[in-house]
Design a protein around this nucleic acid. Sequence first.
RNA 1: GGGCGAUUAGCGCAGCGGGAGCGCAUCUGCCUUACAAGCAGAGGGCCGCAGGUUCGAACCCUGCAUCGCCCACCA
Length: 895
Amino acid sequence: MPEMPKTYDVASVEERILQKWLDGKYYARSKGEGDRTVVIPPPNVTGMLHMGHALDDTIQDTYIRYSRMNGYSTRWILGTDHAGIATQTKVDKKLKSEGVSRLEIGREAFLEECQKWREEYGGIIVEQIKRMGCSIDFDDEKFTMSPEYAKAVRKVFCDWYHDDLIYRGKRIVNWCPSCTTAISDDEAEYQDEKGHLWHLRYPLVEPVDGVEYITVATTRPETMLGDTGIAVSPDDPDKQKFVGKMVRLPIVDREIPIFSDWHVDAGFGTGFVKVTPAHDPNDYAMGQAHDLPQINIFDEHAIVVDGYGEFTGMTRDQCREAVVAWFEEHELLDHVDEHEHSVMHCYRCDSTLEPWLSEQWFVAVDRLKGPATDVVADGQVTFHPSRWTQTYMTWMENLKDWCISRQLWWGHRIPVFHCTDCGWEDALMEDTDVCPICGSHAVHQEEDVLDTWFSSQLWTFATQGWPDHPEELVGHHPTKVLVTARDIIALWVARMIMSSLYFIDQIPFEDVFIYATILAKDGSRMSKSKGNGVDPMDLIAMYGADAMRFNLLTLVTNNQDVKFDANIDKKTHELIDSPRTEAARSFVTKIWNAARFVMLNMDGYEPGEPQASTAADAWILSRLAKLTASVTAGIEEYRFGDVARELYAFFWNEFCDWYIELCKARLAQDGEGRLIAQRNLVFVLDSALRLLHPVMPFVTEAIWEYLPVEDDAPALMVAAWPDAGELSRWVDDEAEQAIQLVVQLVTSVRATRAAYGISPRQELAVSLRFTADDEDARAKRALIERQKDLIIALAKLSSLDILDHDAPRPAESGIDFVGDIEVFTALSGLVDFAEEKKRLETRRAKATKELEKLDKKLGNQNFLDKAAPEAVEKVKTEHAALVQELKLIDAQLAN
RNA sequence: GGGCGAUUAGCGCAGCGGGAGCGCAUCUGCCUUACAAGCAGAGGGCCGCAGGUUCGAACCCUGCAUCGCCCACCA
């Protein structure tokens, strides 16, 4: 048999194993019972993957690998998102650094630049996904702007357009005057800024009760040029007398009405609000409700338009200054307060956004939201953890029409054509340059492109042949689970549900798994600008993909965010270390070494069934059976953190720490015992590797190549998942108790040894004495007799005697207790007995304190009456044991 | 303003109604031929604060504090 290298060389092995998988195309769709199609949330082609992707992809890969091994039909669909605004920004910046702008090179050349960018970064992203070990369908990569996908997007637009779900309208949008595009609310960044609250006086046309003017408070005095009303709160009694009166707007000399509206907070400012419907979302809403004119005072660059005299041609800032100066000059500036408020900025160029009235395209959501709410309410689509259901529902309730047009170039161009001659307009699947009505060639396509989410909402079905090959969807849609981050529940998850229900009358996925947001160690968001981000590729380079994956999965609990334990150099922003990932790497190494030990003891091995020939065998097989059931259920329920911890505890603390040690004596001898131990070791190791494989695919695959298991599978990755039902025949609670006793006895002797500083090489004579002489004690005694050699070997004893229950205590011995068994360790000539006395006294104090607690409990009649009988019984047993222990300690002390 | 989450050992986290746990770090002793990326042992906790429910609360309820996230708003 080939010998395993002494050390596990992570980098070279992971590289080789990856190639093996790719060569074998084991990542491709698998056939089986029950469909498990999963779509990857398409990463943006803007750059590299971050820790969120690493977590997302690790979860999906673990799930898919498990499902593949467990005989499901699987397919994990790969793809990337063109990410309109984000990519365009990156390409803009790149061009700028080369000294050109997109306006100079034109739309066509710019799109070519975007394509180039996409090819480069899309390629990098796919390489990174490979490097993490993801078993995704690499031969069939999707892209939200591929010709097939574009066709799906276009069909969705046209169908909705013709079903009156898409309309064009003038609305207030977040406008970036520098990028000259609308951006969505989620693309706006709020920043708290110190500003001012200017109090301006507006004269009343007719005095009211002798009052000649009212005072409004505003943070944006420049917008007063577009004021068309003044609002007061309906809950403000002092102001009601002004309602219905008119105000003469200074500078523009316009008469505007005072009205009452619920938007107004009587307690803020002066209680009078200037209303500028064209330049504020709230004012727009009030303007709609009260039928006010919408006066746009800015052009697309936020320059004051014609007709405002000296103010025309000014920027927002210049205009603000000039307006304030004018009010001051005319003694209409009441006063100015300092005021902190948050201001929206463009996340691309950081300009202050202008709420701006412009022509945009919208999706009417009224007919879409009902069905999308129902499928979640009735459990067809289930969120995990369940609390996200509420987030979803709340968002659906408050859903407003969706602005889908973007004044960008990189994206799906809106397929609406109009004729400037006759006014014809339609959404078309094929481009045209002739008007079908008047035959004119004055036909133009809309310049705007669609919001990126408009295309990604189709992801589950447009990646699977829709609309041209609907047969591809059969059996593979709805997909099984969507694994994603919580911040796109509204932006993406909800929209996928809406569009999927509309177009293919199916939910897009059965489950939505929302994982925790990964924060930096200090609890703040990881971000490039703060330099506290961790690059998954750095972690892989330092510790390997398996270690990163394992660590990430331990973080998957019910929590909604989690701090990533990594240290980063404050100056260079480079990763220094990640203690938790390092610990995970130790686990990888441990697995390698344990396997290596097994392989070093394979001389004379002949394949055969596992066999519970000793208590140790029965125990480990029982533990394995329970682990298999638990891990299987854990993955099915998306409890990845539990799964990782259980695997760790079994492999390290049970298999390595005890079973391997318990086998060493048998392995050292020739004969049947050795063969049985070999077979059991191979069986348990093989099973454990299978269970570990979805979590740590590389090291398990590498080890499996050495294992002498007969299996048709060409790789562990496509080998069978252990069958919990089949294994359940090994469950053996008695054996588990027996080994637990062995472990306790060995640990007891080791603790005594450590307490006295006795060398591990010094063999000790130990005798055991049972405090009782009942059936239970006799059974335990028989068991210990059977495991005597094991205990002697593991505790490094010269002898192990079992005394009769009434035998005298051995002189000059240390004492310890394992339940009702006294453990005497002969210490004659080895220790200072004053020490032992001190030790016993400490122990006595502890036991006394514990006993008091139990006494109190048992003295409580309510406890005896109301608590579960098992609970009472347990306390009674513990109580008896403690009483016995104290008696023994006292006897020992008296000695 | 509305909602959600967190607060447990120095650090990062599990546990979520009946004995306070894991990993790292710390201390002690070990190169016991699978593993020093290891082995054995040990120390370290008013389980955020205050009430309540319960025979019994880290766990359930209420309030508070601190930190964080999401949504809305900020004239």
